[in-house]
Design a binder for these strands. Structure first.
Length: 269
DNA sequence: GGAATTTATAAGACTGGCCA
DNA sequence: TGGCCAGTCTTATAAATTCC
């Protein structure tokens, strides 16, 4: 299969994924989380999780888990939070995994949460480090909206990466207000400055804007830099590959060959 | 800002058809 | 049969992408 056809296939799969979400909106949860900077850790441990937000795509009800919330529940003053990071992070992740465990049949819509560096595996790993036994969400219940958008609109065309990632660029293009929303660097700085409420609000805001973007994809109103041809996968190369790859084309060539052979034999005899 | 992963491109190896 | 050429496939490398 040619590369244009592969892209076309991915586009169809992404579209099907979005259709599934649209048909079962109440069974999808939008998830995002914040953590320490990936780069500033010197002792080799993985970055701490600072807050997690999970929003029901249908109802908009949002559950959140954060270090500062855990601190408040345990009556730990903000200035003492760094000394109690392990306890508070563990408490937050206890709540998170209890929540996830009770969401049978739900699927999770996420933005690039796909590896041990940043993703579900990273959260599970942190919980293990803190002595917990994580509940593993099956990969079939995860939908990476960032990848799906690339499949749907094209990797190069749809939105620039910009200084703060594609999510921020997408918000700019669609004029979605980014109030309270921090970029990665700002989130890392907020953690260093113990601004946990800011971090929490940013995470909540991100699941909100992800829902907003998803809603626009489903109703077809999302603005991107992609052309109509990019979105619909109509290019001369695609047409050529469809024609040459399709079994019907082979059949046509075969029949034409037989007819030609018969005609030439008739000419001989 | 770091590093792993993904994607795109280039280069080389291989295969099959054609012709002398 | 051997050499040449074109097309295809595989591998290697480079560039882009990604998260906080």
């Amino acid at each position: 299969m040619g590369k244009e056809l592969t892209k076309l296939k991915r586009r169809r799969e992404a579209r099907k994924g979005f259709d599934d979400i649209n048909n079962k909106r109440d069974m999808f949860l939008v998830i995002h989380y914040s953590c320490e900077s990936f780069y500033d850790i010197k002792d080799g441990r993985t970055p701490r999780i600072t807050s997690i937000a999970i929003r029901n795509f249908s109802t908009g009800q949002t559950h959140s888990f954060s270090i500062h919330k855990s601190a408040e529940q345990s009556h730990v003053p903000v200035e003492e939070v760094p000394d109690r990071y392990d306890d508070l992070e563990r408490q937050m992740l206890n709540e998170y995994f209890e929540f996830v465990k009770t969401r049978h049949g739900y699927s999770f819509i996420h933005w690039n949460m796909r590896d041990i560096n940043y993703g579900f595996q990273a959260i599970e790993h942190r919980y293990k480090v803190l002595g917990g036994e994580p509940f593993i969400i099956d990969d079939s219940r995860k939908f990476d909206i960032a990848r799906a958008l690339i499949s749907l609109y094209g990797v190069a065309a749809y939105v620039p990466h910009g200084d703060f990632g594609r999510l921020h660029s997408l918000l700019d293009i669609n004029k979605i207000t980014a109030k309270d929303l921090l970029n990665g660097k700002q989130e890392a700085d907020a953690f260093d400055n113990k601004e946990f409420i800011k971090l929490h609000q940013s995470t909540l805001r991100k699941v909100d804007v992800m829902s907003n973007i998803l809603e626009r994809v489903l109703d077809g109103s999302l603005k991107t830099n992609s052309t109509w041809m990019d979105v619909n996968g109509i290019h001369p190369a695609v047409i050529i590959e469809v024609v040459t790859d399709h079994w019907a084309w082979s059949l046509v060539v075969f029949v034409a060959g037989v007819i030609g052979l018969v005609a030439s034999l008739n000419g001989l005899f």
